[in-house]
């Protein structure tokens, strides 16, 4: 009882802290951030105004992420959309010591091995960007339009499983959102439950 009360208080505190900063929501401006990429460069979201931006929450030990990388689905999406001018950031919000945490060189090795092709992989071991976007799972996906507004937030597709066989028949929400927005249409499915593994944030409250 004592413990659960404490936990509730901690959650309440976390929420209060989080509500002081603007948390991303569909239909509102995407909060700006800057981060160090695994290639050593500093990336600032605001510098990409005028382009579509995809944020992909990543954890290389998560079987739901594994489904999309081992099937080649994620790499295919990265190549397809970056070739059409979309900026794609893979974000690692795992805390040091937790599943999915990677140093810059470890992440570069992973990107090379998987033949992944994001614009950049952003290192977020503090979880600041993850909390800014209230990222709950990997692979949670966010799509931001050229005006800097979040137009999609949620799951990568409509098959919340770890089964590689589900990839071909799934409806990909990220591609749908980009296609519809680029055609000047409203995004039909703008928010879904982001399936996957919980983001392995630091245990310390931020």
């Amino acid at each position: 009882m004592m413990r659960s009360t404490l936990k509730l208080m901690l959650i309440a505190l976390t929420l209060c802290a989080a509500s002081l900063v603007a948390v991303a929501k569909v239909g509102v401006g995407a909060p700006d951030f800057s981060a160090t990429a695994s290639n050593g460069k500093t990336v600032r979201l605001a510098d990409y105004r005028g382009k579509y931006v995809v944020l992909e929450w990543h954890n290389n030990g998560c079987p739901y992420v594994g489904k999309h990388y081992n099937s080649g689905n994620m790499q295919r999406l990265q190549k397809q959309w970056t070739s059409e001018g979309v900026v794609w950031f893979t974000i690692l919000s795992s805390a040091p010591g937790k599943q999915g945490y990677a140093t810059a060189s470890q992440e570069n090795d992973y990107l090379a091995k998987m033949q992944a092709a994001p614009t950049a992989a952003l290192l977020d071991p503090s979880g600041d960007i993850g909390h800014l976007y209230d990222a709950k799972t990997s692979p949670q996906m966010v799509v931001i339009n050229p005006q800097g507004v979040v137009i999609y937030d949620g799951a990568i597709d409509d098959k919340p499983t770890t089964d590689l066989n589900d990839v071909p028949s799934a409806t990909n929400y990220v591609s749908r959102a980009l296609e519809q927005a680029m055609a000047g249409k409203p995004v039909e499915t703008a928010a879904t439950r982001p399936y996957g593994c919980s983001v392995k944030y630091s245990d310390a409250t931020h």
């Binding site: 030990g61 998560c62 079987p63 739901y64 937790k98 599943q99 499983t161 770890t162 089964d163 593994c197 919980s198 392995k200």
Partner: peptide, 13 residues
């Protein structure tokens, strides 16, 4: 059965 068994650290399908 298709199963997902998880701890707070990891999930194993």
């Amino acid at each position: 059965m298709k199963l997902l068994v998880c701890s707070h650290e990891m999930c194993i399908p």
